[in-house]
């Protein structure tokens, strides 16, 4: 039996708090970057099978744009910032003021990709900084990588390390978005997937007892 099925409610709440702190900081960063109000949804911690993980972003075949980075250091893991191609276009339009960038036909303009890359970098960086400050765990993000493809192909990349240990993933999911339900609004998901051995370190650092 893997430890994943044995997490206590208290431990799950601790993981939620991590999502809260990380995404809160990232939302602030995004708000400053775009100079507009950004809200954050209450984080959720989900324990999902691999197939269910893909359902969280609309199924394995859904096309998503994602910034992915590996966290190295004391508590390794994977981190995704996921948004839809339409939202990615919105980002570029809002920052450049140029409405022409589109994900409809490759090759995509370098400038647009570069902006998305940088947004991902800033947001993931602020998420991790907050997390690292909070836990006092040394975390070094890799250089982020940006890609647009099927969700299954992208997200499964973050499942590799933990798949050696378990058929389930623990995902700390936080959504940040502009207020309102308009499709034009900025919205994105943060997924943090700590590697299995990292949970113990995170819990220890925060004074939450293990099993």
């Amino acid at each position: 039996m893997s430890f994943i099925e044995n997490l206590s409610n208290y431990q799950l709440d601790t993981l939620k708090e991590i999502g809260n702190i990380g995404a809160g900081n990232a939302a602030t960063a995004l708000s400053k970057l775009l100079d507009r109000k950004i809200d954050m949804k209450t984080p959720s911690v989900r324990i999902t099978s691999f197939d269910e993980t893909m359902e969280m972003v609309g199924g394995a075949e859904t096309v998503i744009v994602s910034v992915f980075l590996r966290i190295e250091g004391e508590a390794p893991g994977s981190m995704f910032y996921v948004f839809s191609p339409e939202q990615a276009e919105q980002f570029v339009h809002q920052i450049t003021g140029n409405e022409e960038f589109s994900f409809a036909n490759p090759p995509y303009p370098e400038m647009g990709l570069s902006i998305l890359h940088e947004i991902g970098n800033i947001l993931a960086g602020s998420y991790l900084t907050a997390l690292s400050d909070f836990t006092l765990i040394n975390m070094q993000p890799s250089v982020p990588s940006l890609t647009m493809d099927m969700a299954g192909a992208i997200i499964s990349e973050g499942l590799m390390e933990l798949s050696r240990e378990s058929d389930y993933a623990i995902i700390i999911d936080t959504t940040i978005q502009e207020p309102g339900a308009d499709k034009q609004n900025i919205q994105g998901h943060f997924f943090l997937l700590p590697d299995p051995e990292s949970f113990e370190k995170i819990f220890a650092a925060l004074g939450v007892d293990g099993q």
């Binding site: 992915f68 890799s142 250089v143």
Partner: peptide
Amino acid sequence: GAQMFSFSTSSDMMRV
């Protein structure tokens, strides 16, 4: 068997 992300790290898991 694609490589979805290009990383400079030589982590084995990234060449999976």
